[in-house]
Design a binder for these strands. Structure first.
Lengths: 204, 204
DNA sequence: ACTGCCGTATGACAGATGTCATGGCGACGG
DNA sequence: CCGTCGCCATGACATCTGTCATACGGCAGT
């Protein structure tokens, strides 16, 4: 009796995106009504196509799927949000939830979970991998301040202190202080490790 | 008249893998007869299912799709090899070709190219993105020696010189020398940048 | 009002990192 | 058999990084 579920797919790699569309197309009750390749095109497309469920990849040009989720959640709170990602990083889960996501799936989960998640969120359920949820809770919140995160992100391409100081309009000493505190908070021994760990946890 | 083309799909993320299978399943002349999630399972599966074309992702546990391609190429040279990857790194293309690949596709190409590539390689054609091919040629070969690559790879997680020396059974000075020459060859200013650049080019 | 915490800054110090010159050893090509 | 190259090593030097103590203004919570 119910009409088909209208789904939007946001994913930057077209081959993956179209493959997921093919997968969902096999389901009778689901219809992919829109596809976008950039985070910043999500909101408009959701509006235009009266989407029921938006399926969002995190890593996208324009803006991340998490940011896109937040935008949609603010403007159109009725739209259900499924966040889909390659990396099961606890920090991602946390921020996705804070952005109003209804489901959080990792791409190495079985494909059947995708359609299932779409149906469940529409029924008002939340879908979260319990292992990941546990990890997210166990690990605690991001200990880094905004500025520390920003400097760490800027340092992640191998820039030197002098370059960082210039681009961030800070003194060189300040840059070192921030990196130093970040290194200590993450309990590592240099900036490279700090970047790696923060990335892994989804804190960058 | 010709029987269906038997395809093996190797890709570690099950959602993507099954989605690609769904996509290829839409084609009448193609049949996905095997799916594996690890590089080191490819060869056995190709043998077992008398596969015509193997579709290999590069980033996989066990071994990379490129290594798997080389194995298949050596043992069963009649099997056609399509390498599929997220990252259009020229160095990847180069090594894929050296491993005997018949096609090289990036995941952000349109989905239609996938089935098309399968048919073309079976017809004896090679399928390569011309832009990428140009980039691979323009950039030249990997200037790093085996050892330099190895040390750079080991250093990429933020290990310190002392740790590298220990795990690689080298003197600390030697480690520094290798990193220094790698840094110079890549025309960068520190190991972090060296790692980044080498990664980008697919030289790691 | 007082107490944190954040952002910013400085100066000093120790230790890590990058560079350079130099050497030995083995393999491979001319 | 000689030159070149890759691999490994040492020592010396300059620079970059990480740590610590200290400071000041702002802003939030008690």
């Amino acid at each position: 009796m119910s009409p088909t579920i209208k789904v939007l797919l946001a994913e930057d790699q077209s081959m993956v995106r179209e493959a997921l569309a093919a997968l969902l197309g096999l389901e009778d009750d689901i219809e992919v009504v829109a596809q976008v390749a950039r985070g910043d095109e999500v909101l408009a497309a959701v509006r235009e196509h009266a989407v029921d469920v938006a399926l969002l990849d995190i890593e996208m040009p324009g803006c991340t799927g998490i940011e896109a989720a937040a935008q949609v959640h603010r403007s159109l709170p009725a739209v259900k949000l499924v966040v889909l990602t390659t990396f099961g990083r606890p920090g991602y889960l946390r921020s996705a939830m804070e952005a109003g996501a209804d489901a959080f799936l990792v791409k190495d989960a079985p494909a059947a979970q995708l359609a299932e998640a779409v149906r469940k969120v529409l029924a008002g359920e939340r879908v979260i991998d319990p292992t990941l949820a546990a990890a997210a809770l166990a690990e605690g919140a991001n200990p880094l301040t905004d500025r520390e995160r920003e400097i760490l992100r800027a340092a992640s391409d191998g820039s030197t202190n002098a370059e960082l100081a210039k681009t961030l309009h800070l003194s060189q000493g300040t840059v070192r202080n921030y990196l130093s505190t970040a290194i200590q908070k993450l309990a590592v021994r240099n900036r490279a490790e700090a970047v790696r760990i923060a990335r892994e946890k989804g804190w960058l």
